[in-house]
């Protein structure tokens, strides 16, 4: 984390980091074999600080972290590993009945064209949702920031979808544009001349669900974006106005770089939302249909687990999903390293 943070004044590091850096892994192991751990610790730590003092500080640090690490280990990591183990079985009745099939589940996934389609659709869906959410929330937040009065009124109206539970959002949207009994269906058909028919038209279903997912996530993004904009020093806004820079170029050239750490944070959170959090819309509106057009991975996983009681396959899918999202996350963070401007 850049230069050493002078805040870290409790605890101690036993000089482990420095020790490793100086000697490299093999050197350290050789040293340990020769002097034993006690000798190494004795030598490695910075002089002048009592070994006991540092050890006490370090144990306090781990004690403070214990609840978080314990809960993470027991209720997040252990079940995740169990899921991995489960993915090598065929299961029935909520995992009660399980027979070992090794990579059987993974083979079915690799060979099933439906699953390949599902992966492709998921990535397209995630991209649409993330881009849609980021652009619209940025525009709305920026307008909110620019407007001098009535801000809190607009704000409440812009962030309330965040409070809406996903299942409820799904039901409400189902009723808004249900092809035959939707409240808005007639209006939309009148206005755009399109035939609202997303029960049978795959592309339409994809966009309808994407719009619902985007709409739900706007609130969360507006909160963070407006907060970040508020943190940008006001002098910059005045300076830009003096130079006569237009509103939208001001947004793109000045504000976006300055709030890029927040935007990066939001891209990561929106990606996780698009992959894992949009299941309710699919489950309530299209059930992955029509013809698998909206069968995103998390829905397929959920249906295998809870409708077909095939937890083995579902676990395999969760492993693949985890891998896909990790790769995407890594790319995002790597890509953004140069673009994100820290310390606004």
């Amino acid at each position: 984390m850049g230069t050493r943070d002078t805040r870290e004044i409790y605890g101690g590091s036993l000089g482990v980091g420095r020790f490793l850096r100086e000697r490299g892994l093999r050197g350290t192991i050789a040293y340990l074999r020769e002097h034993g751990v006690r000798g190494a610790v004795e030598n490695a730590r910075e002089d002048g600080r009592s070994l006991l003092g540092e050890l006490r500080g370090i144990s306090v640090a781990y004690l403070l972290l214990a609840p978080t690490l314990l809960v993470s280990a027991v209720f997040l990591y252990y079940p995740a590993l169990e899921a991995l183990e489960l993915s090598f079985h065929q299961t029935l009745f909520f995992g009660g009945e399980r027979t070992w099939v090794g990579l059987g589940n993974y083979e079915t996934l690799l060979s099933s064209s439906a699953y390949h389609e599902s992966v492709a659709i998921t990535i397209a869906f995630a991209a649409t949702v993330v881009v849609g959410v980021m652009t619209i929330s940025l525009i709305v937040s920026f307008l909110l920031y620019e407007v001098d009065w009535g801000q809190s009124g607009y704000l409440i109206a812009a962030i309330w979808p965040y409070a809406l539970p996903p299942a409820v959002a799904g039901i409400v949207f189902l009723f808004l544009i249900h092809p035959s009994i939707g409240t808005l269906t007639a209006v939309i058909e009148g206005a755009t001349g399109l035939e609202v028919d997303w029960f049978s038209n795959g592309r339409q279903a994809f966009f309808v669900v994407a719009i619902a997912a985007i709409w739900k996530q706007l609130g969360y993004n507006v909160i963070f974006t407006v907060a970040a904009l508020n943190n940008v020093p006001a002098t910059l806004k005045e300076a830009a106005e003096l130079d006569g820079i237009g509103r939208w170029s001001r947004l793109v050239r000045i504000y976006v770089p300055l709030i890029s750490p927040t935007l990066l944070f939001l891209v990561v959170m929106n990606t996780i939302y698009a992959f894992f959090g949009t299941f309710a819309f699919i489950d309530l509106m299209t059930q992955g249909g029509p013809g698998g057009a909206t069968n995103i991975m998390i829905f397929d996983l959920y249906r295998n687990a809870f409708e077909f009681n095939n937890h083995g396959l579902a676990s395999a899918q969760s492993v693949v999903l985890f891998a896909v999202v990790s790769v995407l996350m890594y790319v995002q963070l790597r890509f953004s390293d140069e673009r994100v401007h820290y310390g606004a």
């Binding site: 065929q90 029935l92 009945e97």
Partner: peptide, 11 residues
């Protein structure tokens, strides 16, 4: 395919 998987999983 599903019928076959079920019998196989149930043993």
């Amino acid at each position: 395919a599903e019928m076959e998987r079920y019998v196989e999983a149930r043993g």
